[in-house]
Design a protein around this nucleic acid. Structure first.
Length: 276
DNA sequence: ATAGGCGCCTGCTGGC
DNA sequence: TGCCAGCAGGCGCCTA
C-alpha cells in the first residue's frame, strides 16, 4: 500500500510523539511478519530513547540512543500509529512499544503481514542493509545530469523501471501511473528510448506528484492511515489510477488499464502515445 | 540483464 | 441474494 508520500506522512506524524521518548515496554504477537522479530531484541531496546524518526525510500528508521535502529516497512497494509495505551487495540496489531511519559504507545498493525519491523545493532549495519538491497536515490535528490544516464541503458519499460527500488526509491504502483500520465509517457515505453528532455520531464513530475501527494497526506484507498490515524486525501486527485474507462482529465479519451511488470497500469491512450 | 511467475497473507468485491 | 475466484498500495526468490 504505502508508497513514499504515505511513509513520509507517517514519519512526520510520529516524529513529535516519538522523538526523545523512552521505550518502556515491548509486546510482540505470535504471528510472523515478513522478517521475524527476535525475542532477544526486547531487552535490547527497553529503556532506550528514540533519538530520531526518518524515512529512506519506503523504509521507516527509528534511531535509538545508544545507537541502534528499529527499521519498519509497511508492506501493503501496514500501519504505524501512536495511540493512548488505554485505547483498545485493533485486530492484527503485531508489535506494541510502550512509551514513557504521556501514556501513549507505538503500534504496528498489518493485516496481510507483508510488512516488517527489525532491529539493527548499529548505524553501520543499517547502512550495509541498504547497500545490499542496492536501494536507489531519493526522487528528490535526482538531478538533470545524473538521472537520464540512470535509465539510458535499460531495455525495460518505464513502469518496471519506476517500480524498481534500485533505480529510484519510494515510487510504487499508484504514483508511477500518475507520474507517467503527467509526463505524457506511455508506461510500456522502453526506458532507453527516452530523449534527455523526456527523461528530465519525468524527473520533474516525479517531484511534483510526490510533493503534492505529501501535502495531501498520501492516498487512502482502503487501509492506509498516517501516524495519527488520519486517512490521506490524494486519491481525490488521481488522474488515471483506478479510473479505467473514465475520461482523461486532459483530453477526455477513456483511460485504459493493462498489465505491466505484473501490476495493473492505467494510462491515457491519446495523451501517452506508445511511440509505436 | 531481464521477464515472468510464484509465494507470502487477509479481506473485499465483481461477476456469475 | 449468495458464493468464491481474483485481485489489492510490496518485495524477494526462482527459472528460463
Amino acid at each position: 500500500m504505502p508508497e513514499l508520500p504515505e511513509v513520509e506522512t507517517v514519519v512526520r506524524d510520529l516524529r513529535p510523539h516519538l522523538t526523545g521518548c523512552r521505550i518502556a515496554s515491548v509486546e510482540v504477537g505470535k504471528k510472523k511478519l515478513r522478517r521475524p522479530w527476535s525475542a532477544a531484541w526486547n531487552t535490547l531496546i527497553v529503556g532506550q530513547t528514540i533519538r530520531e524518526v526518518r524515512r529512506r525510500g519506503k523504509w521507516i528508521v527509528m534511531a535509538l540512543e545508544p545507537p541502534q535502529s528499529l527499521l519498519a516497512h509497511l508492506g501493503m497494509t501496514g500501519q504505524l500509529t501512536v495511540a493512548p495505551a488505554t485505547e483498545p487495540r485493533a485486530n492484527h496489531t503485531h508489535v506494541v512499544l510502550g512509551l514513557d511519559g504521556a501514556g501513549q504507545e507505538l503500534r504496528f498493525r498489518d493485516s496481510r503481514r507483508f510488512g516488517s519491523m527489525t532491529l539493527f545493532p548499529d548505524d553501520a549495519s543499517l547502512e550495509r542493509f541498504f547497500e545490499t538491497a542496492k536501494l536507489g536515490p531519493e526522487p528528490f535528490d535526482l538531478d538533470a545530469k545524473s538521472w537520464p544516464p540512470r535509465i539510458a541503458t535499460t531495455k525495460r519499460n518505464l513502469k518496471a523501471v519506476l517500480l524498481d527500488q534500485r533505480v529510484v526509491s519510494g515510487v510504487g504502483n499508484i504514483y508511477a501511473d500518475e507520474m507517467l500520465w503527467l509526463a505524457r509517457l506511455h508506461p510500456g515505453r522502453i526506458a532507453r528510448t527516452l530523449t534527455r528532455t523526456e527523461a528530465n520531464r519525468l524527473r520533474r513530475v516525479m517531484v511534483e506528484v510526490l510533493t503534492r501527494a505529501i501535502e495531501r497526506r498520501g492516498s487512502t484507498i482502503r487501509d492506509y492511515v498516517g501516524g495519527s490515524g488520519l486517512k490521506g486525501g490524494y486519491q481525490e486527485e488521481f488522474r488515471v489510477y483506478g479510473r479505467t474507462g473514465k475520461p482523461c482529465p486532459r483530453c477526455r479519451a477513456a483511460i485504459v488499464e493493462t498489465r505491466l511488470a505484473g501490476r495493473s497500469s492505467h494510462y491515457c491512450p491519446k495523451c501517452q502515445p506508445s511511440g509505436e
